[in-house]
């Protein structure tokens, strides 16, 4: 691939990124790439720095050093609303829905940056087609739904922003097995639509199954990377994350 193509197909490029949480350095000089149309997953134990990395990417944390480029534009240290305006949507760990607002209001907030009401209506139809369960609950308080439904709302809310890059942080965490299956079904569906996704998961086997490319994070550093099929067969990964 020549340089010209690399720029055209690279959605996210992270270079030597270091992020500190208080005094602890949680992410230490990470390099990572997500190509357009790719699903990339990031696996690692609790406390490996996965969520810290995601929060730095979407602007919720300010990196200490390094660069983050979204489609070539340097977004390092930008506030979340600017990064969102450039097309990144982050579904944060623990969902972070607006619990005291209705489902409809949550979805409307997802399309906050879109002024065209016809476009908002079109996206809403798309999202409700993907999550039919939300349609019956539009007038309900978001916080009164089950965890799995809230996760669907968090995903739907992000999709209302028509993201060019979707960050998913632990979408299956704390959900009943049936919902976990449903969420991964949705991620498969989004992949088929050609969306670009960076996925953080503790459910390593499901994540490696859906992903094209994988990174393994340990105590703030990338210790292994490669096509997901290869990473899934790595003996160390098998032992540590896949219960093999």
């Amino acid at each position: 691939m020549n340089g010209e193509d690399a720029r055209a197909t690279c959605m996210l490029a992270v270079e030597r990124l270091t992020v500190a949480y208080g005094r602890t350095v949680a992410v230490q000089g990470i390099d990572l790439r997500v190509e357009v149309g790719q699903v990339v997953c990031l696996i690692g134990a609790n406390g490996a720095g996965k969520t810290t990395l995601m929060r730095a990417l979407s602007g919720l944390l300010r990196p200490e050093a390094g660069h983050i480029r979204l489609e070539g534009a340097d977004i390092t240290g930008q506030p979340p609303h600017r990064i969102a305006a450039l097309g990144m949507r982050h579904v944060p760990e623990g969902r972070q829905i607006f619990a005291g607002l209705t489902v409809a209001e949550n979805l409307a907030l997802g399309a906050w940056l879109e002024d065209e009401s016809a476009e908002i209506a079109r996206r809403l139809e798309q999202v409700l087609a993907l999550f039919p369960r939300l349609r019956e609950r539009l007038a309900q308080m978001a916080g009164s739904m089950s965890g799995g439904e809230q996760q669907m709302l968090a995903l739907g809310r992000a999709l209302m922003g028509a993201p060019r890059l979707l960050l998913l942080d632990e979408p299956s965490m704390g959900l009943a097995p049936l919902f976990v299956e449903e969420i991964f079904g949705i991620i498969e569906e989004l992949k088929r639509e050609g969306r670009t996704i960076l996925l953080v998961e503790q459910n390593a086997s499901a994540a490696l199954e859906v992903a094209d490319y994988a990174y393994v994070l340990e105590t703030g550093r990338i210790v292994l990377q490669g096509p997901a099929v290869q990473v899934a067969q790595d003996p160390a990964v098998l032992a540590a994350y896949l219960g093999g």
Partner: peptide
């Protein structure tokens, strides 16, 4: 008003929606 209520609920998430929280 919607932005204000979103921010009252969850300022981080409001920022992720593209709301200028400052």
């Amino acid at each position: 008003g919607l932005a204000i209520r979103a921010m009252a609920e969850n300022p981080d998430a409001a920022g992720l929606m593209g709301i200028d929280t400052g």
